[in-house]
Design a protein around this nucleic acid. Structure first.
Length: 929
RNA sequence: GCCGGAGUGGCGGAAUUGGCAGACGCGUCGGAUUCAAAAUCCGAUUCCCGCAAGGGAGUGUGGGUUCGAGUCCCACCUCCGGUACCA
């Protein structure tokens, strides 16, 4: 008995793992000093490796979290061993809707539930033995942190975008540009920058600074800030009680909670992200990001080149502009524009309703636009039948001179272009469908190929029915008509984007308050940066009212809202001036837009990031490696790039992009069971009747095994705590990395974890005598084992750099399988270092039993001897017409002639050899007739 | 519909990028150990025919390039992710 008292098992793993975690914490093994601090080693290269920080929920970690975190942990531990300064931080993305909703459900304040969730997440993450520098930990809800989130908001608020220089500049510089006459304010209130000091033709409605009243000057400045208040049709979610950004609405439903979303005009805080559209697209080029993500961002921004064209209105009412302005990417088809369409929200509609034309059916028009404006996005998507009403108005087609009708239809969206189109049914399928439904004329202006039997033709071809364009190919025709439009003052070239300005205010409680107050004239004032943070007030009742009208929850905090300029810290006003605080809060994205900067210098009380820390850790290229899920491809990753670019323009960071290299780990799915009608059966209601045959326990009906996202309803969620209890964290880490390529989606299969557990048992047994617990060494090194060890070290190092952890682990398994007879002390020393990044706890335990006093986590990566990677003799294949017929052993450096001779010698009889192909060190292929 | 990505044993996946398909792990089968079981260890395991030696087929389907194709080209099928009246 007691013969195998020192085996590696779950109990043992659960004993040593917390013990080593404590040692690392006590020795501050993974605390990375900053430049300027005494312990900092300036001679080492930096490696800033960032995980997407988690949103701590009450449910705790799921198995998807540790996937990316284990990957970065292995890479960081490896990079430390080869001599990098490694910045590998962790924190909490803790403001946002889900925490507030959970708090409403439980009746406990979100500050309390969020802190509990953070504590639980920290406990779970630490149990994995991740090498985070926990001294840099923070949460976005910490006052020390969101103070700077508010500070950055003020930076954006106090900036404008100079179109001429294509960059953000401080707002003071706008005022001086205007004062010096280098800019004017156009009819829409936007800045008009001049590329010459001399002002030539001021466009209609534009005015110079000195022609504006003081109030108009103030309005003009406010209207040009990068953060501004605007009236916009927004996505309003009654269930969540807040407006949402475009990016947060998926198929007409809220990204969080899948509640229906309506369109509603609201006054909201917006970020002028559209000003950066060009740079956000162009700078994707230099990034080492997955192509799919770059494509998604580029498509989301949706740059298109076309023209804006004015179609004069026929006898317009005096309150209407003289022409209807449209955007088109196909100006070459203008001769085929047989009617116009405006969106239901288009201002012309209201003008017409006030002063209807002779042909206007006022009741029908009013009924249509009222219904269309109230229709939810979901309803819009469900019914794509073309509907619309004739407005009674007419335009002149400036190319043909023809009078054409103006319709209103909901297939034209107010939010894109000018909310109006010229309809060319011959070359646009949507216009074709509409023209067919309402019997409008169709004129083709591009000649389709002879065999074309479709409806609208969108391909290449010569122009027809287009006067001076006839015969020109599409590209040429476009250039020609654009020149004509510009010469005649009818239209001009225009670049358009699908991207809209970012709606930044939420009517929720659990978020950063805006550092803004309003005076009695409803004019906004910034809170002085020195008085930040504007802290979130306590609120007794933060439950939302389900409502069609936005009521920011903070409005309930009356004493907090009503204050004075002096108390609020607004230096621009007399201290006694009564003001109201902004009651909207920032969206959950705010905190994650810049957390990677704060990790570089998390305790800096004077700046959001110290200059020295910023220069070293971020430098000119930004974060070296960022790993996280692909679900953030256009949300967080676009917003963070935008904030970063503003900070870059204003001189706070020196890298134009925040994340040089990005990698998405694949989703871990789980098995699920499906009935013949495709409905899913919870996993605990299914049993395996025979091999590969699964039946529903209750009915005995056969079900199919499929893979699906883990979800509570399918009862196929795997809890990491259970796996650790059963096998230990080292086994868990190895299993997740061994499942398959990091980037791929992979099904979780708990049965497979035992393979990695056995690997650790064998590795342990290779090193330790299981009856005594002492390390054991072979007396002399076996030549083959030594060779294999060199190859293993080499392979693991290469694979880790490629993030190919599954093959790295396979190589270690092969080594341990081959070395069950035992290894020398020196060999064990090297193997333990190789194992350490993957299974750090068991590696430390072996290391310490070898008598080492330092941590293996602090050891250097073992060196290899290149000569040991080569074989003296290799086996090569002999093929006849591509089929392997024999294998021969030859010297590794055998010449082409030697190989050919040896290969031909294996052939029997008298083959008719036509040709022999020799691939050195690999194979010989003999071609016979 | 459009844009990405992927289809390899019973399962998860390897394959130095055009050079011996199936590394490694799970499972299964056989054996050892055990009073027995668990655990562990050893061996076998792509499929088909065959007692065997051996033979044949084989990387979603069909075609092509090549001495040679999982890998390259063309057409198609299926699955996953994204997106959708963006003029």
């Amino acid at each position: 008995m007691n013969q195998k008292a020192h085996r590696y098992d779950a109990r043992f793993a659960n004993e040593i793992e917390p013990r080593w975690q404590k040692v690392w914490a006590e020795r501050k093994t993974f605390e990375q000093p900053n430049p300027g601090e005494p312990a900092f080693d300036a001679g080492k290269e930096r490696f800033y490796c960032l995980d997407m920080f988690p949103y701590p929920s009450a449910a705790g970690l799921h198995v998807g979290h540790p996937e990316g975190y284990t990957a970065t942990d292995i890479l960081c531990r490896y990079r430390r061993m080869i001599g990098f300064n490694v910045l590998h931080p962790m924190g909490w993305d803790a403001f946002g809707l889900p925490a507030e909703q959970y708090a409403i459900q439980t009746g406990v304040h979100p500050a309390i539930t969020t802190r509990q969730a953070i504590d639980n997440f920290r406990r779970q993450l630490q149990r994995f033995g991740f090498s985070y520098d926990w001294s840099r930990e923070f949460g976005t809800i910490d006052e020390d942190y969101y103070r700077w989130t508010q500070w950055i908001f003020l930076q954006i608020y106090n900036a404008w975008f100079d179109e001429l220089e294509q960059r953000a500049r401080p707002i003071d510089e706008l005022v001086s540009e205007l004062e010096q006459g280098h800019a004017a304010i156009d009819a829409d209130g936007r800045v008009l920058r001049f590329d010459h000091e001399e002002v030539r033709d001021l466009p209609e409605g534009a005015r110079m600074w000195d022609r504006l009243t003081a109030e108009e000057q103030q309005d003009a400045v406010d209207a040009n800030r990068l953060a501004y208040v605007g009236e916009q049709t927004v996505n309003w979610c009654p269930k969540l009680g807040t407006a949402l950004a475009n990016e947060e609405v998926i198929d007409g439903r809220s990204e969080r909670g899948q509640h229906p979303v309506l369109r509603k005009p609201l006054r909201q805080w917006l970020f002028r992200i559209t000003a950066y559209a060009d740079r956000l697209v162009a700078d994707l080029d230099g990034l080492d990001w997955p192509e799919s993500t770059k494509t998604m961002q580029a498509e989301w921004i949706g740059r298109s080149e076309g023209a804006q064209i004015d179609f004069p209105l026929v006898s317009p009412p005096p309150t209407a502009p003289p022409a209807l302005r449209v955007y088109t990417t196909r100006p070459d088809t203008i001769f085929g524009a047989t009617y116009m369409v405006v969106a239901p929200e288009h201002p012309l509609v209201d003008v017409i309703l006030e002063r209807p034309g002779k042909r206007t059916d006022v009741d029908a028009l009013r009924a249509y636009v009222t219904e269309a404006r109230n229709r939810s996005d979901i309803e819009r998507q469900e019914n794509k039948e073309k509907t619309g009403v004739f407005t009674g108005a007419f335009c002149t087609n400036p190319a043909t001179g023809a009078t054409i009708p103006v319709w209103v239809a909901d297939y034209v969206l107010m939010g894109y272009g000018h909310g109006a189109i010229m309809a060319v049914p011959g070359q646009d399928q949507r216009d074709w469908d509409f023209a067919k439904a309402f019997e409008l004329p169709i004129v083709r202006t591009v000649q389709p190929p002879a065999d074309f039997d479709g409806e609208a033709y969108v391909g290449e071809g010569p122009a027809i029915n287009s006067e001076f364009l006839d015969g020109l190919e599409v590209d040429h025709a476009k250039r020609r008509i654009l020149d004509w439009l510009e010469e005649n003052g009818i239209g001009r070239r225009q670049v358009n984007y699908r991207l809209r300005d970012w709606l930044f205010s939420r009517q929720r409680y659990w978020g950063e308050p805006f550092p803004i107050v309003w005076d009695d004239n409803d004019r906004p004032y910034a809170v002085d940066a020195s008085t930040l943070p504007v802290t979130l007030p306590e609120l007794e009742d933060y439950a939302p009212e389900e409502s069609d009208d936005p009521k920011p929850l903070l409005a309930k905090a009356g004493d907090w809202v009503r204050t004075t300029a002096g108390e609020a810290g607004v230096a621009a006003l007399d201290p006694s001036t009564p003001v109201r605080r902004e009651t909207n809060t920032m969206p959950g994205w705010a905190g994650s837009c810049w957390y990677y900067l704060r990790f570089c210098d998390p305790r800096n009380a004077d700046r959001l990031i110290g200059e020295e820390a910023e220069a070293y850790w971020m430098g000119e290229r930004g974060v070296d490696l960022y790993i996280g899920g692909a679900e953030h491809a256009v949300l967080h990753l676009l917003y963070a790039r935008f904030w970063h670019k503003v900070l870059f323009d204003l001189g706070h960071v020196r890298s134009p992009e925040p994340f040089r290299k990005l990698f998405h780990q694949g989703m871990i799915t789980s098995y699920a069971y499906q009935r013949d009608d495709k409905t899913l059966v919870p996993i605990d209601q299914v049993e395996e009747k025979s091999e590969g045959v699964y039946v529903e326990t209750a009915t005995g009906a056969e079900v199919q095994r499929i893979t699906a996202k883990m979800s509570k309803s399918l009862k196929n969620v795997v809890n990491p705590d259970d796996i650790i209890e059963h096998y230990g964290a080292d086994t868990f880490r190895l299993y997740e990395m061994y499942m398959g390529p990091l980037a791929d989606g992979k099904p979780w299969n708990t049965d497979d974890t035992v393979g990695l557990y056995r690997f650790l048992q064998r590795a342990w047994r290779m090193a330790v005598d299981e009856s005594t617990g002492e390390v054991r060494y072979a007396d002399a090194a076996d030549g083959e084992i030594e060779k294999k060890l060199h190859r293993t070290i080499d392979k693991v190092a290469r694979d880790v750099e490629k993030l190919s952890f599954n093959t790295a682990i396979a190589a270690m398994i092969e080594f341990v399988n081959a070395a069950q007879g035992g290894v020398t002390e020196n060999q064990l020393d090297r193997f333990t270092r190789v194992l350490a990044p993957f299974a750090p706890h068991v590696a430390e335990e072996i290391w310490s039993r070898m008598g080492r006093t330092e941590c293996v986590s602090d050891a250097a990566w073992p060196a290899i001897d290149e000569a040991m990677l080569k074989d003296d003799e290799v086996e090569i294949a002999v093929q006849v017409k591509g089929k392997v017929k024999a294998r021969i052993r030859v010297a590794a450096d055998a010449s082409k002639e030697e190989l050919e001779k040896a290969a031909l010698a294996t052939l029997e009889g008298e083959p008719n050899v036509v040709k022999v192909i020799v691939v050195l060190g690999r194979l010989v292929n003999i071609v016979t007739r």
